[in-house]
Simulated scan of single mutants.
Amino acid sequence: MSALPGVKALVFDVFGTVVDWRTGIARDAKTVLAKHGRGDVDPHAFADAWRRRYQPAMEEVRSGRRPFTRLDVLHRENLDALLADHSITADEADRQWLNRAWHRLDPWPDTIPGLIRLKSRRFIAPLSNGNILLLANMAKRAGIPWDAILGAEPARAYKPQPEAYLRTAEILGLAPSEVALVAAHNGDLAAARKAGLATAFVLRPTEHGPEQSTDTRAEQEWDTIAGSFEELADKLGC
């Protein structure tokens, strides 16, 4: 019997689970930093610092202190603040290009072959905090074979708000138990489980670089646990 019986749709965390955000952001940050004479700034540290502003920016929306604002806008505000911290006066074209680095992230090596297999037996879509254009551009560039683009913008809620998970299931016309979240983050899975979704943990031990200390193992007995998307496909009989 395959894992996740009764699950009709797999929805995926994207940043870190489907794509390697840190390497991609550092690659493009290195270009802009060099252009502005700041080769002394570690591009991976720059990527990490940008990412650290991610949750606080979304919390302004989750708390109700700010209306729903798409992630491209939040990323740009965070980038402007980060550049100011480094006294970098990049022009508008450079800022726009670097902000779009989030649209140009590369998948992990197992992502595309694994998703192709999973798609053969299940509906697959992102359930990401990324906005529709960001996720669609990423998919087009990388060949990610989504059946639809779902997530925070269609749901008008940022994970781990329960509405992010429940409205995604509603959009699909499915009960929460018929949807499984696939993620490399225990916290995301815990919120999905609380909302009634099935859960699949996929290990990404280098998302935060070689010294990663978080999400290095499954911290609960998730419905299924795998080391890659291809292993997940094996477990689901795809």
Results as ranks from 00 to 15, higher is better:
M1G: 08
P5H: 09
G6P: 02
V7L: 00
A9E: 10
G16W: 04
T17M: 04
W21L: 12
A26N: 00
H36G: 12
G39K: 11
G39M: 14
D40M: 08
H44A: 14
R52H: 14
R52F: 12
R52T: 08
Y54A: 02
Q55L: 15
E60Q: 10
R65W: 09
P67F: 09
F68V: 12
R70W: 12
R70M: 08
L74W: 00
R76S: 04
L79K: 14
L82G: 13
H86P: 05
S87P: 14
S87Y: 15
I88A: 09
A90I: 12
E92L: 13
R95L: 01
W97R: 06
L98W: 05
L105S: 06
D106M: 14
W108Q: 03
T111A: 09
I116P: 11
I116K: 09
R117G: 06
R117K: 14
R122F: 14
A125P: 12
L127M: 06
N131A: 08
L135K: 00
A136G: 08
N137M: 13
R141E: 15
I144P: 03
D147K: 02
A155I: 04
P162E: 03
Y165A: 08
L166P: 05
L166Q: 00
R167F: 03
R167Q: 05
A169L: 02
A169W: 02
S177L: 13
L181C: 04
G187K: 08
G187N: 15
D188K: 00
A192C: 04
R193D: 09
A200S: 12
F201W: 10
G209V: 08
P210W: 02
D215H: 10
E219V: 14
A226C: 06
S228F: 00
E231I: 08
E231N: 05
L232G: 01
K235E: 02
G237S: 08
G237Y: 05
G237R: 10
